[in-house]
């Protein structure tokens, strides 16, 4: 079984940004992503999820390294200053490289 290396980009941010992030993903050419509700605590305060504008989301995208880096720098440029957001990249192995 051959495994192929791709990048997994994970973004944890405010739920209110979801629509804009999805729009960015489309425009920059991501082919698929997964969004889940999240809660936790960071230096911008506790994010409790039990009220619509306090919630967080976790966005995961698996893609080519170049796209992952473009997405990461786009998000950093547009959202880091004013919004609660962290993101990180990891190598992951996938079975069907054409999907990502």
């Amino acid at each position: 079984m051959t495994m192929h290396v791709r990048k997994l980009l994970t973004v944890v941010t405010e739920a209110g940004l979801e629509r804009r992030l999805v729009e960015d993903l489309r425009q920059l050419g991501a082919r698929g992503w997964t969004i889940t509700d999240a809660r936790g605590q960071g230096h911008r305060g506790k994010r409790a999820l039990d009220w619509e504008y306090e919630g967080n989301i976790r966005l995961e995208v698996i893609c080519e390294e170049s796209l992952a880096e473009r997405l990461a720098s786009h998000f950093r440029e547009h959202y880091y200053q004013d919004y609660a957001m962290i993101l990180f990249l990891q190598d992951v192995e996938v079975l069907r490289p054409e999907k990502f």
Binding site: E14, G16, Y53, Q81, D82, Y83
Partner: peptide, 17 residues
């Protein structure tokens, strides 16, 4: 409800807290 959401989008540098 309406104002916090709109302000977060349009005036993100304002502190929502």
């Amino acid at each position: 409800i309406a104002a916090p959401a709109a302000m977060r989008t349009a005036v993100p540098e304002a502190n929502p807290a």
